[in-house]
Every structure is written in structure tokens, then in C-alpha cells.
């Protein structure tokens, strides 16, 4: 009887241990996974979740597409603007070249006017030469690297002692450079008897004329300020 009771007690002990421990494992499992994690979701919940995510995805996809469209529009406008600004840039470059704000190079002529004891060049001679060159279609002219622009002055001061170009004093030898059609320049400058070169040579002036294919003329290095003129509206 006593032996039977002991075995019963042992069996009951083991069974209780197993039951209680498994119950507590289960408690803890349920507690841990009670929070909304994907691992702990049932199939229906998962399905609902997928549906809601799909909806969200579609919404966001639509937004993305509209945003992409906007971006495309913006890039188009930017491109247009870029084209416009390129156009303006090119125009600006052209105008700068026209005004004389850029270093330029091209075919042309280089004249060297040298003062001698017998004859020296005056400012009016230079003005005449510049005028001749312009007549011959010169697109850019410089005297001793002073660029001749719209507002350039060529004046003599103190009874022809100094010559000022662009307000800077220049001295002999005067190097006059011009870019333009070589044939045209040649024709005008070397015009028989009346052209600049033969005329002044006949009068005893010393001057060289030299046609070059790569004449370099520097830019006008001062600011061009317009104070009084205004555009008429």
C-alpha cells in the first residue's frame, strides 16, 4: 500500500511538473507574441494587411507618377530656359565682339608707321588711316594694342607732341592692326597714288605693310559707360 502511494506520488509529481511548465511556456509565448507582429498574425489578418498595403502602394504609386510628370515638365521648362539662355549668351558674345570687349583674331593687315627725322605721323594721319581701314571693311582695329571702338578718340595734344588713343599716350612706331578681308584691305590701302600707303610713301613717310593670316587684336580694356543716352520708348 505504501509502495503504491510512493509511485503514485512520483508519477503525480512528474505530471504536475510537465503540465505546469508547459502551461507557463504557453503563457509566455502568448504574452510575447500578443503584440502586432507579422509572425503572430493569422492568415486573415495577414490578408487584410496585404490588402491595405496594396492600397497604400497604389496610392503612393499614383503620387509618384504625378510627381514624375511634374519633374518632366520642370525639366522641359528648364531645357527651354537653357536654350533661351544659350541663345542670349550667343547674342551677348556677338555683341561683345561687335563692341570690342573681346580679344579677337583673324586674317588682316599689320601696318607699322615709323616717325623719322624728316616726317612724323600726326593724330589726323592716324584718324585718316582708321577711316580708310573701316572703309575697307575692317572689323577690328587697334593702334599700339589700343582697341579702336565706337567711342575711341585719337587726338593730338600740345601741338602734336603727344598722340592719345583711348586717353592713353602712344609713341612711334605706331603699329596699326586690322582684321578684315585681306584683298579688300590690300585694294583700298594700296590704291594707286591715292591709297594710304603709296600716298604717304610718296610724301616721305616710313611705313611697313604686312598682310598676316593670324592677326591678334586685344579687347578694349576700359569700361564703356553711357551716362546721357537713353533708349527712346
Amino acid at each position: 500500500m505504501k509502495k503504491g502511494k510512493i509511485t503514485i506520488s512520483i508519477v503525480v509529481f512528474f505530471i504536475t511538473v510537465m503540465l505546469v511548465s508547459s502551461m507557463f511556456i504557453q503563457f509566455r509565448t502568448v504574452e510575447k507574441t500578443n503584440s502586432m507582429g507579422i509572425d503572430s498574425m493569422r492568415e486573415n489578418e495577414l490578408r487584410q494587411e496585404i490588402v491595405s498595403w496594396k492600397n497604400k502602394y497604389n496610392e503612393i504609386d499614383e503620387k509618384l507618377q504625378s510627381n514624375n510628370q511634374k519633374i518632366e515638365e520642370y525639366t522641359n521648362t528648364i531645357q527651354n530656359n537653357q536654350q533661351a539662355s544659350e541663345l542670349i549668351d550667343n547674342e551677348l558674345k556677338e555683341y561683345n565682339m561687335l563692341v570690342g570687349k573681346t580679344n579677337v583674331t583673324g586674317d588682316g593687315v599689320v601696318l607699322k608707321l615709323i616717325d623719322t627725322l624728316e616726317q612724323s605721323f600726326s593724330a589726323s594721319n592716324l584718324v585718316y588711316l582708321v577711316n580708310e581701314l573701316k572703309y575697307a571693311g575692317a572689323e577690328a582695329i587697334s593702334i599700339n594694342n589700343q582697341r579702336i571702338i565706337n567711342s575711341t578718340d585719337i587726338v593730338s595734344i600740345n601741338n602734336n607732341q603727344y598722340i592719345l588713343v583711348n586717353g592713353e599716350r602712344i609713341v612711334s612706331p605706331y603699329e596699326v592692326k586690322a582684321i578684315g578681308n585681306k584683298d579688300e584691305l590690300d585694294k583700298i590701302l594700296n590704291f594707286e597714288n591715292d591709297g594710304f600707303v603709296p600716298y604717304y610713301r610718296s610724301k616721305g613717310y616710313t611705313l611697313d605693310i604686312n598682310f598676316q593670316s593670324n592677326v591678334k587684336i586685344p579687347s578694349y580694356d576700359k569700361e564703356i559707360i553711357l551716362k546721357y543716352i537713353k533708349e527712346e520708348e
Binding site: 504536475t16 511538473v17 511548465s21
Partner: peptide
């Protein structure tokens, strides 16, 4: 059994 099961669990 309850005590040991609780600890084990």
C-alpha cells in the same frame, strides 16, 4: 511539482 514546473516554464 507546481513549483518546479513554474521555474522550468
Amino acid at each position: 511539482g507546481c513549483v518546479i514546473g513554474l521555474v522550468l516554464g
